[in-house]
Design a protein around this nucleic acid. Structure first.
Length: 694
DNA sequence: TCAATCCGTATC
DNA sequence: ATACGGATTGAC
């Protein structure tokens, strides 16, 4: 501290008002001088001097373009879709130029752009439009959507040109894999002819689906258009990547995933944006890829929860792609071994057509599936089976399989949070009022609904009429070591969690995997055993049955065809509808029935369901201000599930409306969020169509 | 009477 | 978030 400052402080202490007033005057004078210094009139650009800018601020009520003056000095740099820095409410913020125009609608004076970051037009017009649609759909902001859509800039990468792709090979031997599907060749032909067919594709079990996807992309490329393929994870990306290389040749496509790292991701993104690559395969991060002349969007295994974006506004990859298909008038392919209720809904409404194998072809390619009950009596008979806690017939099937090749054992992960189920037939217990799942908040309360908090002391199982409830024990899932001991002398490998195997060889051996981590076996598995199926069905997830069937089908699809001895044995209750669907290999029929049930239970996709979460006072205030559509039901509030520490102590409501009122509900929520942001009220989180709702 | 402070509103 | 304007309160 200097002498002067010390003296100043002394004065402050003696004459505080005087000193502060003087300091203020000095500051004001300095500011005015500064302002005059800045006031030097900016020369506007000779053409289209107005830039419409989407600013990156997190406030819902500021989620619209603001006009800025393009200085002549930045004329060359400022393109439609480029990044800029602007002064906004006194601070420097990032933004995107959505377009440059001749005149502004804004009555006041325009501030000049502060800086042109780079002329690279990273925000494609169709993605700018899409960000608006998605923000409206998910009651979020465009800036949140854009944060997901445009990767971070990497300046060094931007300076380098993108290598243009080699020209499309004409008349390659086209898509014989699609011969197995009714309407398969017609679908490809339509793509090649520049059409925009939309299909829900029931894939045949086996390893041919990546090639089928690649052939669809190739057919689209032959029409001169681009294709975008989204798959759940890195392993699937690699499989489709290999298939694309096979079908299109090298360098005709690009891989786009979040795990590439900033530089490689930006390089891939730029190759797409610049039109150097027209075919893209990637994970959910790729759904926004600005593919030139987009002709086809495709998603594989759309029920995988990796497609649910965990960042606001929580868009689902399938919804992103379907919206793009509508906005950009391109083809859509929703494929998998399983069907989601959403894909069943697309078929039901006629939005998409089915693309499925003939029954005879399916019979030829699918493994033989049997269900084996897990009664204690069966367990007792064989010491090996007892050691592995396996029913005798499952144990025998595994042993039999080991004589011919690799055997896959799928076991549910340990430590699933489970909710209550009927103690007789293991049907998950749901609230008769609103179909939420039941749980025991404390040991001394009756079963209570997780959504509407209704107590159900006299619950009766709708399937079997039983009154007993049980919480399936946690950690019943078994380990590779445990199972290995029951099969002495057999090699046991494990694929789970951090250590996931991509593929295994054709030699006999046990592979123990958790759902989603199953490696592909060369030549297919001789046997696939699905263990503890009731544990998987005991999760409190709203869509357990659908999700369990999806996981079983995905594992079962890795088995050899029945004609080559391929077998699947599921350990569980034979009457369980999802297991029945597995035996019949009828994912479409099961999804159709689930969809009908959901419709009558007022659950998605026939209804739109939204959760609103916040601290109790905020939530109450928010709901008070919310202008809901007429038919809206509000369930709760109940304490929010405390899976993560940040949701601790918060409350949640579930709001649902008939699907037709979905847009009105989203709009009401967006207005609510706008008002709250403008008034600086406490944050409430809105989640439209959450997938893993308990 | 003037200035500090609070509140609401706009942010280009 | 800031920034600003207008109303309100408070100290002489």
């Amino acid at each position: 501290m200097t002498e002067d400052e010390r003296e100043e402080e002394g004065q402050l202490a003696l004459l505080p008002q005087l000193a502060r007033a003087r300091a203020r005057q000095a500051k004001k004078a300095a500011e005015q001088q500064g302002r005059q210094g800045r006031k030097r009139p900016v020369e506007p650009a000779p053409e289209r001097p107005v830039a419409r800018v989407l600013v990156d601020v997190p406030l819902a009520h500021l989620d619209r373009p603001f006009d800025y003056l393009v200085p002549a000095s930045m004329h060359e740099q400022v393109t439609d879709g480029c990044r800029v820095r602007v002064r906004f409410a006194g601070q420097l913020v990032d933004g995107y130029v959505v377009e440059r125009v001749e005149e502004s609608e804004h009555a006041g004076r325009l501030a000049p752009l502060a800086r042109a970051v780079s002329p690279e037009p990273v925000l494609a017009p169709e993605i700018a439009t899409l960000s608006g649609t998605l923000a409206a759909r998910y009651a979020g902001t465009r800036s949140d959507v854009l944060r997901l859509a445009v990767p971070k800039r990497h300046a060094a990468t931007e300076k380098r040109p993108s290598q243009p792709a080699t020209p499309a090979p004409r008349d390659t031997d086209a898509g014989r894999v699609w011969d197995a599907y009714q309407g398969g060749q017609a679908f490809l032909r339509s793509l090649t002819d520049g059409g925009s067919p939309r299909a829900v594709w029931t894939a045949l079990p086996g390893p041919t689906w990546p090639e089928a996807l690649a052939q669809a992309a190739a057919a689209t490329a032959r029409s001169g258009r681009g294709a975008l393929l989204c798959v759940p994870d890195r392993r699937d990306v690699d499989r489709v990547d290999a298939a694309l290389t096979e079908v299109l040749g090298p360098d005709r496509h690009v891989v786009l995933t979040a795990d590439l790292g900033p530089a490689a991701r930006y390089r891939a993104f730029l190759a797409v944006r610049r039109g150097a690559a027209r075919v893209v395969v990637g994970t959910r991060a790729a759904a926004f890829a600005p593919v030139h002349d987009l002709g086809l969007v495709a998603i594989w295994d759309d029920g995988d929860d990796l497609f649910a974006e965990p960042r606001a506004p929580y868009p689902h990859t399938r919804e992103v792609l379907l919206l793009r298909a509508e906005e950009q008038r391109c083809a859509a392919l929703i494929g998998g071994f399983a069907h989601t209720v959403e894909s069943a809904y697309l078929l039901d409404t006629g939005w998409a057509r089915p693309l499925a194998p003939a029954r005879a072809v399916l019979r030829e390619r699918a493994p033989r599936v049997v269900i084996t009950g897990a009664t204690d009596r069966e367990l007792e008979r064989d010491p090996g089976a007892r050691m592995a806690r396996l029913p005798r017939s499952a144990y025998d099937a595994i042993r039999g399989g080991l004589e011919h090749g690799p055997v896959l054992l799928q076991t549910p992960r340990r430590g699933y949070v489970s909710s209550l189920a009927c103690d007789r037939c293991r049907t998950p217990a749901r609230c008769p009022v609103c179909t939420g799942s039941l749980w025991l908040p404390t040991a001394h309360t009756p079963p209570t609904c997780r959504w509407c908090a209704t107590e159900q002391p006299g619950w009766a199982c709708p399937e079997c009429g039983g009154h007993g409830l049980r919480a399936p024990a946690l950690g019943e899932g078994r380990t590779a070591e445990e199972i290995g001991r029951a099969f002495p002398g057999v090699s046991v490998r494990s694929s789970a969690g951090e250590r996931v195997l991509d593929r295994v060889g054709p030699e006999p051996g046990l592979v123990v995997a958790t759902p989603g981590a199953e490696p592909v076996a060369e030549g297919g598995y001789a046997c696939v055993a699905l263990l503890d199926t009731w544990l998987m069905l005991a999760r409190p997830d709203l869509r357990v049955a659908e999700e369990s069937l999806r996981r079983w089908l995905n594992a079962a699809a890795l088995a050899r065809p029945a004609s080559e001895g391929g077998r699947v044995v599921a350990v569980g209750e034979p009457a369980t509808p999802s297991l029945q669907a597995l035996v019949r290999w009828d994912p479409g029929g099961f999804a159709r029935r689930e969809m009908a049930e959901r419709r009558s239970a007022h659950l998605p996709p026939a209804s739109r369901l939204v959760t609103v979460t916040g601290v109790e006072a905020d939530l109450e205030e928010a709901l008070g201000a919310l202008r809901l559509p007429a038919a809206a039901e509000v369930l709760g509030p109940v304490p929010a599930p405390t899976r993560a520490p940040e949701t601790d102590g918060r409350a949640r409501v579930v709001v649902r409306v008939p699907r037709a009122q979905g847009p009105a509900l989203s709009e009401a929520l967006r207005q609510m969020q706008s008002q709250r942001a403008a008034r600086k009220l406490g944050p409430v989180r809105v989640h439209v169509d959450p997938v893993g709702l308990e």
